[in-house]
Design a protein around this nucleic acid. Structure first.
Length: 311
DNA sequence: ACCCAGGCCCTTG
DNA sequence: CAAGGGCATGGG
């Protein structure tokens, strides 16, 4: 008889999570999904269940229901699924945050198992710089090209992969190279950011900084503003209070949380200005707290799903 | 042909 | 501050 604390049961819907606009280099071959995260190839083999439940009190995964989920990686990292899907986050607080009101609670119930993903920071930075003013299909296209051109080639399970280039490798890329990867006007941003990180920015140090301090470091980089910085902080630098506001999330906020816009000079249904962004963010953090980022991911997924957008 | 896409930068008023 | 234009490119 296994006893456990309910709060340590973490529901995970892996496929929904890796196909929710956070990561862009997962693909299915045969019966497994393979994803590139920095210099790792991650492999997931699932049965036909949608929702998996992990008890993270136990050092290694135990079966609460009949779970068949194989997760391997190249190079080997036995613990990656715990890190990648943030199984050690405080589930009690997450539940509380996503039950803050009826609106978010309904969305939470509908997509339960959607997780924030903890990514390789450099890949995350490049990913979201490429994500500006384009669609997800093209983000995948650009990042794949970058990997093909500048990442190391590896073979795993008899399949050829390209890892994502590290800073030093991508610093070798010229603007012309990056344009050939399909980046368009983003090429100059990626070039500048790679050089900047290589010469004088330690990404690890950003994890130890306060949210807004780390954010101001990121927004100094050419091509990174409020929204992209929040994506990077949330998805790769441990800032779960970060709340990226793109056009979709903003629409969603206007629709469901209009009351937040009263008494602050923020106009609904228009492009959000830098000042407005900061005002809204402050309200969000006051209301949802340190796990605001989870709310963002659920809102984003929900509104895009309701609009039948593709991933 | 037109408009939009997980925005940001730059210039003007 | 704010408003507006420009930006590369591909898909609907």
């Amino acid at each position: 008889m296994v006893t456990y604390n309910k709060m340590n049961i973490v529901p995970v819907d892996p496929l929904r999570s890796i196909n929710s606009g956070q990561v862009f280099l997962w693909e299915k071959y045969n019966n497994s999904w393979y994803g590139i995260d920095g210099n790792y190839v991650l492999k997931l083999t699932l049965n036909n269940k949608e929702l998996y439940k992990f008890n993270v009190n136990i050092k290694h995964r135990i079966e609460l229901e009949h779970i068949e989920i194989d997760y391997n990686s190249f190079p080997e990292n036995k613990n990656w699924i715990y890190q990648y899907f943030r199984l050690y986050d405080n589930q009690e607080k997450i539940n509380k945050t996503l039950s803050k009101d009826q609106i978010i609670f309904n969305i939470y119930k509908k997509y339960r198992g959607l997780r924030l993903i903890r990514q390789d920071p450099f890949q995350c930075i490049i990913s979201f710089v490429c994500a500006s003013n384009t669609n997800i299909k093209r983000i995948r296209y650009m990042l794949k090209n970058i990997s093909r051109k500048f990442g190391k080639k590896v073979t795993y399970d008899g399949i050829d992969f390209n890892l994502f280039p590290n800073v030093n490798e991508l610093s070798e890329a010229s603007i012309q190279d990056l344009i050939e990867c399909g980046l368009g006007y983003r090429a100059k941003f990626v070039r500048s950011i790679s050089n900047e990180i290589k010469s004088n920015l330690d990404l690890k140090s950003l994890k130890d900084m306060e949210y807004l301090d780390a954010k101001s470091e990121l927004t100094k980089l050419y091509g990174i503003g409020n929204k992209i910085a929040d994506c990077i902080l949330l998805f790769s630098l441990e800032k779960t209070e970060a709340f990226p506001i793109d056009i979709w999330v903003y629409r969603s906020l206007c629709q469901y949380y209009g009351w937040m816009f009263e008494n602050i000079s923020v106009r609904k249904n228009k492009k959000i200005s830098e000042k407005e962004y900061k005002l809204v963010l402050k309200k969000i953090n006051e209301y949802f707290g340190e796990y605001s980022g989870y709310v963002q991911q659920y809102l984003y997924y929900h509104i895009r799903d309701s609009n039948k957008r593709k991933w």
